[in-house]
Each structure stands twice: as structure tokens, then as C-alpha cells.
């Protein structure tokens, strides 16, 4: 499924009206979400997720360029989520994150990342299930300026570690039990909306587009992302380790065609 917006479509979305109320979506908010749905899931209508999905984000962001968000899976009534999406409705590119769970994943781990929020907006999480259902839930967030916010508090430190990846695993791992891990990728994730006054030009977009995570050769997650992801993208995922231990491999591709690849040993351990 192709959920990227064309530049023209993205511009159309930028020019639509901003969200006004937080009590419930305004007609303009609803219209905008319908447009996003139509582009991402043509001809389909997501149903309210109820207890199956929950979307967590701060009501007001501490830093609009670094907003922690998470999607948790609840009672799916025997169904199974195969793909999870995160949309920030009023961002220039609404789709922030699309995650396809692989055979080595523990989908109960849901989705967790950090995003940029450009203006007060509704956010949506959408789940595609094995039985073909499309489930949605939403929340409102107060934050603005995240996409054009100047990046890089310390450009020299950022350059020194560019391309590095870091994997955070829990201290104890028990084979057969799901492990939640965090992957950090040192990358400016430039949005193309950050202005450089000296050069009188916009810093070109340069962002992580795709991340593949595998455990012992089997896919844990295929992630498609966009400019909404914060600088130094952070991705959480869950998988079930083998008794003998193994290797976690990550490939990250950015919009400039650069590929970052790294692997880490994952210990087995007492079961």
C-alpha cells in the first residue's frame, strides 16, 4: 500500500483550515481527515477502534519538534494487527509512521516513536487487521512549529555522531518472552522547511524513509517514515528472542539514498 502524499497533495493539505476546537473535531478537521484516509486507504472507511487501540500523546508538547507518541493494542477479539499507521492530520505530510509487523514481532508491543508537530492538530492511529478490518482512534495535541523549528542544538556534536545507531535492550532477557527494544538512529531528519538565513535558502529535506529490523533473519518490523519523525529518530519494537540467543540486524534508508546498517548480538539466557 502506498500512503506517501504527492507534493501537490501535501500543499493542498497545508492550505486547508487549521483545527480550532479540542472538544471534538470541527467539520474542517473531519474533512481533512477524510482527505488523508482517501489518499492512504482509497475507497475504505476505518471503523472506531474502541478498546482495540489506544493512542498516547501529551495534551501539550514540551518540545514541538520532539513529541513522544505511542499506540497500544488492546482487545482485538481474536483478530490480529498486521500493520499500524500514525497520522498527524495538520502536518505538511500527515503520515508519520507505518509499521508492518513481521513473523518475529510481538505486535502487542504496539508502536512508539517521537514526532514533530507543526500546529495544534488531531492525530490518528489506524490499524489494519488480518481479517481485513481498518480500525481508527484519535487524540488532539497542542504544539506548534515542530517542522520548521531549527534543528541541531549542537551541530558539531550532531555531525560527530551522524549515522550512528544505538540499540537499547532491557537488562534481563528471557527466551520465549517478548522483549521491548528501542532503536535510535543519529540523523538530522531535515524536513526541508528549516530556513537558513545565511544561505537565504531552505535546508534540503534529508530524512530516514525506511527501516527494516530483523531477528535471526526473520522480519521484526518494516517501518516507513517521513519528515514528521524527530531528529535522531527513535523507534520502539518488540520481538521474542530464541533460547540460543541471536542477532538483531537493522537497515535504515534515507531520502538521499544513503543506507545505514548495523547488527547487535542479543543474548539468550535462562528461560
Amino acid at each position: 500500500m502506498k500512503t506517501m502524499l504527492s507534493p501537490a497533495a501535501a500543499l493542498l493539505l497545508v492550505s486547508s483550515l487549521p483545527a480550532a476546537a479540542q472538544e471534538g473535531p470541527t467539520p474542517a478537521d473531519q474533512e481533512r481527515w477524510q482527505a488523508v484516509v482517501e489518499m492512504s486507504f482509497p475507497g475504505r472507511t476505518p471503523e472506531p477502534a474502541g478498546a482495540a487501540l489506544s493512542l498516547q500523546a501529551p495534551a501539550r508538547a514540551g518540545d514541538a519538534a520532539l513529541v513522544p507518541v505511542g499506540v497500544q493494542l488492546g482487545d482485538l477479539g481474536g483478530d490480529r494487527v498486521i500493520r499500524l499507521h500514525l497520522f498527524i492530520d495538520d502536518n505538511p505530510v500527515p503520515r508519520a509512521y507505518s509499521l508492518t509487523f513481521g513473523p518475529a514481532a510481538d505486535p502487542a508491543g504496539g508502536l512508539e516513536t517521537r514526532v514533530r508537530v507543526n500546529e495544534y492538530t488531531w492525530m490518528h492511529a489506524v490499524a489494519e487487521t488480518a481479517s481485513g478490518r481498518l480500525l481508527q482512534t484519535a487524540t488532539f495535541i497542542k504544539a506548534s512549529g515542530g517542522c520548521s523549528a531549527p534543528a541541531l542544538k549542537d551541530p558539531e556534536a550532531a555531525r560527530a555522531r551522524a549515522g550512528r545507531m544505538k540499540l537499547n535492550l532491557p537488562a534481563e532477557i528471557h527466551p520465549g518472552r517478548p522483549v521491548r527494544a528501542q532503536l535510535l538512529i543519529s540523523h538530522p531528519n531535515a524536513t526541508g522547511m528549516q530556513f537558513d538565513q545565511i544561505g537565504r535558502t531552505y535546508i534540503p529535506a534529508d530524512y530516514v524513509r525506511q527501516v527494516s529490523i530483523r531477528y535471526n533473519g526473520r522480519s521484526v518490523a518494516e517501518v516507513e517514515t517521513d519528515i514528521a519523525l524527530s531528529e535522531d529518530p527513535s523507534l520502539h519494537f518488540a520481538f521474542v528472542p530464541d533460547a540460543a540467543g541471536g542477532t538483531l540486524e537493522v537497515d535504515a534508508h534515507d531520502s538521499e539514498g544513503k543506507v545505514y546498517r548495523q547488527s547487535w548480538p542479543v543474548p539468550g539466557g535462562p528461560s
Partner: peptide, 15 residues
Amino acid sequence: YHPQLITAAYAELEW
């Protein structure tokens, strides 16, 4: 400013 400070500190100390 507290949420801003802690967010920035957290992102820095992760590295």
C-alpha cells in the same frame, strides 16, 4: 520550561 528541559536532557543523555 520543565517539560522542555527534561525532553532536551533525555534526548541528549540517550547518546
